[in-house]
Simulated scan of single mutants.
Amino acid sequence: MRSAGIAAALCVAATAATTTTVAAEVPEMTFNVVGTWSTGAMFKEHEEPMFETLLPEMTGGKLNGEVTAMTELGLKGFETVKLLQSNVYDAGFMALAYIASGDPVFEGIDLALAPANTDEARALVTAYEPVVSRAMEDIHGVKYLISYPFPAQVLVCTEPFETLADLQGRKIRVYSTTLGDLAEGLGGVSVSIPLSEVPTALQRGVIDCGISSGVSMYAAKWQDVVGYLYETPVSAGIAAVGMNMAKWDALGEAGQAAMMETATAFAEKAWAALKETEQQGIACLTGTVIDGGQPCRYGEPADMTLVRDSAVNTEIREAVLRDFVLKRYAERCGPDCTALWNETAGTVIGIEAQP
């Protein structure tokens, strides 16, 4: 017994010594980091704390960063990856839909309507993430750290609708090619407008509907001009954390391990919050509390009408996914790219993309 106790103590001491040695090997570095939208909950609650709080805590203050939202810098979503390529920023948070126009392989992680729920979204991302990681390094020369979800993307309109079939002919604001496929699959017209301009466009009738996260809509006061919210998300809203490759290499083995550990903890927190942010979007925009959620914690709830899901909508979503979203994705992606998607993400959701 005594020998076992001594062995255990020696093991603990050895582990502690190893941990101390690894921590000692982490270099002292400060990163300039570009975040996403300053108006969104994701930036304040997850992105900013990753580099300014979590990373210093996990490295004894040796690694830290200063995070500036791209909206404060006057940047567009697709520019982040270019800033990392050109050494302007050391690290950044990127909504993958915004860089997908450069190569369809990036679309595959966040296709409209593909995941039916939160659990399926995460399984799809896990299956397809290695493909995106390789593509990020091969195409852009950027180190891909990890994926994480924005609050689920939902659809709102200014005028009433009972089912998705009622959206035929309506002008729908989208921000990605795959969401454009969704809008056109519903018989609508896809319109690309920057997030900050959407409330004015809705008010003036330039568009009839829009897609974003519920919490972001609430923060941007879309509820002042829209009245109807479809309860089921139409996209997962997947983003990624990336690093300039030279900065990544400079971290060394111990620094890279610490960075990946921090990124993993950050992503886990974002995934854990996904269902709650979906509930909050509905609670804040409509005042309706669903699935055991909580009342709006961002302010006084609006009184939009919640359009509940139905069997009719399920049939419509499945048809649009098969005949528009996946079909057009396969056409853009090509045979090899499509086969790779089918072997990974497609296996998770049980459907193949066919041109």
Rank of each mutant, 00 (worst) to 15 (best):
E66A: 15
N32V: 09
C333V: 06
V26A: 03
T200Q: 15
G227L: 02
E72P: 06
A41P: 00
T347W: 10
L145C: 11
C157L: 05
R204I: 13
L55T: 01
V105I: 15
V12C: 11
G102S: 06
R297G: 04
A270T: 14
E253H: 07
P27Q: 03
D309N: 14
A9P: 00
T314N: 14
K44C: 09
T39H: 12
A7L: 12
S38M: 08
Y218H: 00
D119C: 07
A8D: 14
G334Q: 09
A302Y: 10
F324P: 02
N87G: 10
G141R: 07
V12H: 03
P301I: 03
I172P: 01
R317M: 06
E28M: 04
A250G: 02
T15N: 12
G227Q: 10
A152W: 04
I109Q: 06
T286W: 04
G350Q: 09
T163R: 06
E331F: 09
K221Y: 14
R134D: 15
G77V: 02
V156Y: 07
Q203H: 12
T59V: 02
I316C: 05
R134G: 13
V67H: 10
L111Q: 12
M217I: 05
V131I: 14
M94A: 02
R297L: 13
E352H: 12
G185T: 03
L96V: 15
M259N: 08
V22H: 07
R308H: 10
V88R: 06
I238C: 04
F51S: 02
W222M: 04
Y329V: 05
R134V: 10
A319N: 07
N244F: 07
T19F: 14
D208C: 02
E300C: 01
P295S: 01
A4C: 09
V156T: 15
P335K: 05
A165Y: 06
Y144M: 15
T314C: 09
C337E: 05
I316T: 05
V34N: 00
W222T: 02
V33E: 10
T232L: 09
G185K: 01
P27K: 05
L229G: 01
Y175G: 13
T200Y: 12
E315N: 13
L63T: 04
A302N: 10
V125F: 04
G334K: 08
T178H: 12
E231F: 01
G180K: 11
I172W: 01
E162C: 03
G185Q: 03
P149Y: 01
